[in-house]
Every structure is written in C-alpha cells, then in structure tokens.
Amino acid sequence: MSLEQFKTRVLPVKDKLYRFALRFLKDEDDARDVVQEVLIKVWNKREGMDQLENMEAWCMRITRNVSLDRLKSKHSKYTDPMKEGFDISSGESETPYRTAEMSDMMKNIGSFIEALPEKQRQVIQLRDVEGYSYKEISDILEIDMNQVKVNLFRARKAVKESLLNINAYGLG
C-alpha cells in the first residue's frame, strides 16, 4: 500500500477510530494518542493489508485493543464519564430548529447511553452512530454475532424505555 492509498483509504476512518477510542478512554488527548498509534501500526502492517476483507473493521479492532491496553496500563485513573466532549448543547452544532428542550433531552440521552453496560454501549455506538453491520461489529468486538444482536436489542430496549420515562415524567 502506498502513501496515497493510505491517505485515501485509512486516514478518512480516523474520526470513527477516534470516537471509538473516546468511548473507552473518555479522554480526548488519550484517544488522540491512541488513534495516532493505531494509524502508525496500520502503516507498519501495510504489506498484508490487501488480503484483508474489511480494512475498516480491522482498524477498529486494533483501536479497541490499543485502547484496552492503555486502560489496563493506567486503570487507576478513571475520569468522570460526563466530562467535556459530550457536552452536546455547546459548539457549532447548534441549529436554528433545535430548541433548548431538545438539547436538554439529547444530553440526557447521552448520559443514559454512557451509563449502559459496556458491551451494550459499544454495540450501540458501532451500530447507531457509526453504522456498521452486525458482521463487522462482531469482527471488531471479537464476539459472536448473536451476542451482538442480543446486546443491541437490550441496549435499544433500555434506550426506548428511558425515552418514554423522560417523556412521561421529564426525568432522565
């Protein structure tokens, strides 16, 4: 793989890798470091890459492994899940039709998803945010396809219930 191919095929995936790493590490700088490490790793292994059937899923899997390694190496430091980076209401994403109430609810949803069990959180991130197929998710997380479906089902069910609760009682 040449540098040009790397730029067109691997580099555009960086944001997905970054968000995925952020899910694990909950720290923007750490996630950034991880993505950098992953991309260098990918570059070093570029020779065998043409045989890969799904390069993107492979990159995601490396990201997951590197993130987990990093978590292990400094497991004592655990930051608050609701730190910056999930503050949806601020920034340029503000659109005219978005009311304050709407962004409040989105914040609630964000913290609710953060509070889901780890597997469910990862699966819902990969499916609903990044749009991966079940097969790809099972490759990335190295779990069974049925496990993916079960986790997704539980996660969506929990999210649905929480949405109904927010609506009914105005609580998150």
């Binding site: 920034g91 994403s93 999210v159």
Partner: peptide, 14 residues
C-alpha cells in the same frame, strides 16, 4: 432527540 444525538456524535467527535 435520540437520532439527533447519534447524528451529533457523528459530527462532533472528529
């Protein structure tokens, strides 16, 4: 809001 949240996640974390 759920789907908007997902959309935002896609846009913000880059």
């Amino acid at each position: 809001p759920l789907f908007r949240y997902y959309e935002d996640e896609r846009k913000n974390g880059s």
